[in-house]
């Protein structure tokens, strides 16, 4: 039972990170129908910038985090304006390939700027842990869960109640009809990229802190692990991103802890999320919470 609780805790925390990454994908997908591979690059760049502002230049961690979120929001808007906006009206496939290119460019930029190997991001909670009975609570996991919960709640409120959020949802459904209501389609796009890039910073920091603080230009590839989370939850559903993230996180950690299938070799947990994704898609092609198109007969 203790082992189960331990894994549950760890799985939910990992799921929170996946949910944050998936949320970045979903917010852009919802607004523009494009799949943003560069999200993984934002995660990496965000984590390195927090290292730069906080650990290297000595700004207080939380200040560094907020500054980097703002900076990355600006980067997201810039990317949207310079690279994505000119592609409006072009096939979505083209846009997707461009974002894939961006991912590779960002990774190279990170390698070029932070050449020193073995950089370590310091976070206020460090490697702290608390004992709750026989269960160990890693503070990194705790902070991951708290920040994921706060950001997800903020998202939910933003999309449901704010004019900008509603405008973004309307834009996602019908750009021209949205424009006809006075909703600025360009602004909806810009905001979605800003939000996705800012959220990526938090995901990046939590991811690095979970691994003990070691930075690597490859951390963005965890974004790949968030794929099944997002597809499982439903590409256009923020709630689905959360649900999918937590499910995948749990599946990964639980299979790591319990599944000892020697004939499959080690690292079964890497495959389990994809198996789960395929099973769910066979049952519900639009994902757990994805939108079934409303069609009257």
């Amino acid at each position: 039972m203790d082992k189960f609780l331990q894994l549950l805790l760890s799985g939910v925390a990992l799921g929170g990170i996946y949910a944050l990454v998936a949320l970045g994908f979903v917010v852009i997908y919802k607004a523009s129908g494009a799949f943003n591979f560069a999200q993984g690059g934002f995660v990496t760049l965000g984590a390195y910038m927090v290292y730069q502002f906080g650990t290297d230049w000595g700004l207080p961690f939380w200040l560094a985090l907020v500054l980097v979120m703002l900076a990355m929001a600006a980067v997201g808007m810039l990317v949207e304006r310079l690279v994505i906006r000119p592609m409006v009206g072009k096939p979505v496939f083209t846009v997707v390939l461009i974002t894939l290119g961006l991912l590779l460019i960002i990774e190279q930029v990170v390698r070029a700027v932070w050449t020193m190997p073995g950089l370590v991001l310091s976070v206020p909670w460090g490697n702290g842990r608390s004992q709750l009975g026989d269960v160990t609570l890693r503070h990194a996991d705790l902070w991951t869960m708290v920040s994921a919960a706060v950001l997800l709640a903020a998202f939910f409120l933003f999309f449901r109640y704010s004019r900008t959020g509603l405008g973004m949802r309307a834009t996602a459904l019908d750009q021209e009809a949205a424009a006809a209501q006075g909703i600025s389609v360009g602004r909806s796009f810009a905001v979605s990229w800003a939000v996705a890039a800012a959220v990526a910073v938090v995901a990046g920091v939590m991811l690095v802190s979970r691994g003990g603080g070691a930075l690597s230009p490859a951390i963005g590839f965890v974004a790949l692990a968030a794929f099944p989370a997002m597809i499982l939850g439903g590409l256009d559903s923020t709630g689905g991103a959360v649900l999918g993230g937590v499910l995948i996180g749990l599946a990964e950690v639980m299979s790591q802890g319990y599944l000892d299938v020697s004939w499959l070799g080690s690292n079964v947990e890497v495959v389990v999320p994809y198996v789960l994704m395929v099973l769910v898609l066979l049952w519900r092609p639009e994902g757990l919470l994805g939108t079934r198109r409303v069609e009257r007969v």
């Binding site: 004019r163 509603l166 405008g167 459904l173 019908d174 949205a178 006809a180 209501q181 006075g182 409303v294």
Partner: peptide
């Protein structure tokens, strides 16, 4: 200026109330 587009073009996946709010974003 406001318009009712050909084919109605309501936001099918939003609620009635949200559709109205969308008309009031300005």
């Amino acid at each position: 200026m406001a318009q009712v587009m050909e084919g109605r073009r309501i936001f099918a996946e939003l609620t009635v109330e949200e559709n109205l709010r969308a008309g009031a974003v300005t």
